[in-house]
Amino acid sequence: MCLAIPMEITSIEDNVAQVEVGGVKNEVRLDIIDEPAQVGDFVIVHAGFALRRLDRQEGLETLKLFQEGLGLELVK
């Protein structure tokens, strides 16, 4: 039950977004997401709520590090 998955926002009305991934559609509430989400964003969805927007830029940078074979991304 703690499964949470990234889904793409296809439309937003008030505090509710329609989301989709691999043909599976769902409706999620935006009451606790920490920054405004937009259509096209991927959000992490859990128990009917969007928890957070996935940061595409951070994702790309992590991948770049992998690809350059540097491997580690140590912070803190």
Partner: peptide, 17 residues
């Protein structure tokens, strides 16, 4: 303690939640 999931996890978490 390392954050290796930065695309989904901010070091500060989700303050609104």
């Amino acid at each position: 303690v390392i954050n290796n999931y930065k695309r989904a996890v901010s070091d500060l978490g989700n303050p609104r939640a």
